[in-house]
Amino acid sequence: MRVLERLGHTVEFPRGQTCCGQMHYNTGYQAEAMPLLERFVAQFRGAEAVVVPSSSCVAMMRDHYPKMAVAIGRAELIAEVDALLPRVFEFSEFLTKRLGLEDVGAYYPHRVTYHASCHGLRNLLLGDGPMRLLKAVRGIDLVELQGLEQCCGFGGTFAVKNADVSSAMLAEKTTAVLNTKAEACTACDNSCLMHIQGALHRQRTGVKTVHLAEILAGEDGVGR
């Protein structure tokens, strides 16, 4: 919010919004996800651009909404989804691709490492966009994460259904994070961050997770 407003955009938060339906869809409850698609379209159809702070939600919409709309079978819904999706952006993608920005005037004087969330990396092809945004942050000490493209093991209900494997994957991720000696680990996806945070806290490491937007919202108080 703060970043977007600082950049001069008007931000609205349609209160009726809830969930994109990814968890249902990816767990096999596709019928349950259908009404959530309709709800999303109804809430956001008027927006010039929809900015989503979670890469996996955007991946869900781009990869699955078109065929879900076809499955629902209403022509006007199919058309609306087709019209709306090109205006849906993941947060960092909105900044780098839509606005063509790298420096958003942020200040964040901490040692930070970046985890490339799977959906952002492989479905949205964010590439080095988030890294370029981070590099432009004043005061930041950015350290590269070993195996940054490796999955943290969250995977929605995977973390519960296959808790042991998920924990093993997570252990590798947190080891890599700790090896960077960073104060904070960032990403473009809150679910990965919640997952990584869960282990970092359990291990009493003192390392926190922050969403990319929180870093980009950082200001040095001097004003610009």
Binding site: Y25, N26, T27, G28, Y29, Q30, D63, H64, C118, H119, L121, R122, N123, C151, G153, F154, G155, G156, T157, F158, A159, K161, N162, V165, S166, M169
Partner: peptide, 30 residues
């Protein structure tokens, strides 16, 4: 079908572009 975090690394390397995550989700639905 649930033995995957749907990270997509498999699809990325598949030489004949099988969208394994997509099929996993389809099978979960089944």
């Amino acid at each position: 079908p649930y033995a995957s975090s749907l990270c997509g690394a498999c699809y990325e390397v598949c030489p004949v572009k099988i969208n394994i995550p997509e099929v996993l989700i389809h099978l979960r639905n089944k």
